[in-house]
Amino acid sequence: MIQVDISKCTGCRRCEVACAFFRTGRVNNHMSRIKVLQLYEEGIDGPVVCAQCQERYCMCCPEDALTLGPLGQIICSPTVCTLCGACEIACPIGAVEIFNDLVYVCDLCGGNPKCVEACTEGAITFEGKEKERPSLSDIKEETRRMKPGLKRKHYIHKNGQKLRAEWRKERA
């Protein structure tokens, strides 16, 4: 899975650009499977990408269009998918989103994620090995009924608070 360290993120969005470009030949942040948030009010920047959560909320797909790949990644079949939106609603952090009739979710580029290659800061890293997967059950409760954009904001804001406390301590 892709590991995110928001303390190193500068908000440059190189990951986002690379993701869209290498998958579609274009640049468009709606078509990125990793999306960067910049919270200017608090100095927090961070990418949101599939966290490969323990719960696998998105796998509730009623059509079974989503399957798990060998690296634990989510793979969506566009031919089976009926665009019902269940996965988008289920994901607690806004890492699954429909745009122009396609489901955008990170599939690790099949094992060589282009976003990680683009990051010069070490804010996102990838090891092929299975890691202990995080639980998103707390966040799930908090972001119920939010739009994906707002879920991402909530998630990054929440993760940012710990970092801000560290900054404050360090700079006191």
Partner: peptide
């Protein structure tokens, strides 16, 4: 005072800074 680097869109220089 600097706590981290910041960057403009798609820049790999990251020359901006956030301070507290």
């Amino acid at each position: 005072y600097k706590v981290k680097n910041k960057a403009c869109f798609n820049c790999n220089l990251h020359c901006s800074r956030y301070y507290i």
